[in-house]
């Protein structure tokens, strides 16, 4: 499958990236090459093959429902780029 500049632009919004026209141009060609390379997977007959999400196939790993101490608020918020005394602050979420 080939990749167009408008595909790249759409994906950039989905990925929350803002690309310059130069970046879009470069990525259209680079991603196009990579995707073309990846397309060779199509050669393999995988009709009867189950997908494998984990190489080590564990199941049923649990924790007990026991409350442990949370982090002190100031530690949680210490890395926040913008905060007030008790919350993270972000540009208005209205209508988004």
């Amino acid at each position: 499958m080939s990749l167009s500049a408008s595909d790249v632009e759409k994906v950039s919004l989905l990925a929350r990236l803002l690309l310059t026209p130069q970046e879009i141009e470069a990525l259209t060609s680079q991603l196009g090459q990579i995707v073309e390379y990846v397309d060779q997977l199509g050669e393999i007959d995988t009709e009867q093959v189950e997908p494998l999400a984990h190489a080590v196939e564990l199941v049923n790993v649990w924790a007990d429902d026991e409350v442990r101490p949370s982090l002190p608020r100031d530690e949680v918020l210490s890395g926040a780029p913008h905060r007030d005394e008790d919350s993270y602050l972000v540009p208005a979420v209205l209508g988004d």
Binding site: V11, L41, I44, T46, V49
Partner: peptide, 21 residues
């Protein structure tokens, strides 16, 4: 993002998981 996006998931991501097996 492209490989997981709607319309490409089966051709890329799912296919890759099968080859992984």
């Amino acid at each position: 993002t492209y490989a997981l996006s709607s319309g490409y998931y089966d051709a890329y991501y799912l296919k890759a998981l099968k080859v992984r097996r």
